[in-house]
Amino acid sequence: MGPLIPLGQIASGWDFVIALLIGIAFGFILEASGFSSSRNITGVFYGYNFVVLRVFLTAVVVAMIGLLYFNYMGWIDLNLIYVVPTYINSMVIGSVLMGLGFILGGFCPGTSYTGIAIGKIDAMVFTGGLFLGIFLFSELFPALESFYYGDSLGSATIEDVFGISNEKFSFIFVIIAIIVFYVTWLIEKRVRKTVNPYKFE
């Protein structure tokens, strides 16, 4: 039955329409979760607000378990799902850079657009920087290419690399997520006594 597009249930001409609809839904949920506020986002690094971590972990957990049940019921074929290839070097460097940008700018690429949507000036400046970064990266790409594609694992999944079945891993991951929820809640409670807490209306 699924995935709908690779199996031709939805013609590929609809790709852009679907991308637009998913984009709107994604932006709406980011904004509704309070992600258009950079204080909410950087709160993760200062320990007074872990809403980013919790929202994304919830999304991962729900999608993960949902997909596994869908796969079990035969509604979706997990083998046909696109898995982004893993490049160890560039992913490590990329995540460090992304984290730095995150803490300096207070946005990640997606949330900067939701910031613009509600008229935040810092988000507009951030997006300017984002485009500058994209431009520089594209210009430097020929020099970085071998590093960028270096140490490739292909479309690796946890099941392939560590040999843990998807079901077992998702159960472990859910337990970890719940522990993270609880620990971050404890940290927030402690830190918010000293730091003026941010309340979003």
Partner: peptide, 26 residues
């Protein structure tokens, strides 16, 4: 409500471990 949701998700994730194996769906 959060505690309830957590219990639901743990039960769902645990349920995955006990699903009977289906050999070949294709």
């Amino acid at each position: 409500n959060y505690i309830l949701l957590m219990i639901v998700i743990v039960v769902l994730a645990g349920g995955l471990l006990f699903l009977p194996q289906k050999a070949n769906y294709i």
